[in-house]
Design a protein around this nucleic acid. Sequence first.
DNA 1: GCGTCCAGGTCTACC
DNA 2: GGTAGACCTGGACGC
Length: 315
Amino acid sequence: MKKVHSFELNAVPPYSFDLTVHKPAGWWWATPYEIYEADVLWTAMRIRENLIGLKLESLGAPMKPRIGCHVYSESEPREELKGEAQRSIRRALRTDEDLNPFYEMALKDDILRDVVQDLRGMRTQGWQDLFPALILVVTLQMAPMRRSSHMMDLLLRSFGDRISFEGREVTYWPSPSKIARTDEKDLWNVAKLGYRARNLKSIADELVGGFPTMEELSEMPYEEAKGRLMTLRGIGDYSADLVIGRMGIPLDVWSAKIFHVLFFSKVPESPRESIPELRRVATQRWGEWASHAFVYILNDLPRISQRIGFDLTKF
DNA sequence: GCGTCCAGGTCTACC
DNA sequence: GGTAGACCTGGACGC
């Protein structure tokens, strides 16, 4: 692949490129196989079936943020595609978001006060591509983290795409059309998806048939975007919130244990049943910033554990 | 070594 | 409109 397009982005300070694309909890920005070295991210992205390589680099500092973006492709892309790539990257890096109101609120909150100091400038997850986000949430369902990672890894290695540019190799998620063409039995046996194979194939079919893109969903009001996602087979309340990454709080059994300890100083007897109550408390406490609080806390568990004298990383 | 339980939810059948 | 029960797989745990 050769370099076909370059541009720079400014961001609303404070902005931490490092914490945004390389989350402390270990989450990737676009694919688990991307490469992050010294403030430079080598990754990939798919725009309407076109797979492109990306090199994103921090050129500034948290209070004077600038990000250099370089696009790589096998052939010269159309201007329209360049524009779409630019908008998606900008949205997924969340450079236009102003976190200062969140920080003002957090400084008055006993749980968040130190957390926002630890992770100052970190943006929450901004999916650049819809299908990978849906693959993630489908594989997260009813499985321990190790098994979810195994399923995702098998999907990437068996059905994903590999690209090379500037001496780096990145493996990216399969396209919806590739999964739509794949036999459900192969998803079951090769990627070990189990009952999720049917759901993922159905989702891929819907996307191929003309479902809103991540870009289009991001422009819809929260409730409308969530409603559209929940029409997909296997996507419920939790998964839709995780994909949208805006106002919702995607509490699951794992995070319910953590938030129960933080709010009530004890492990819940039934984590699943405690979710509605935890959601109510979180919304009341953090209002419109609840989803930010959620992501910040889950990315700062080791330091919170030290401060409260309870190991939240053991769940 | 073997059986049981349950996990970073969702769908369906049944009331 | 609300809610048990089923669902793949595989690691952890008790015996």
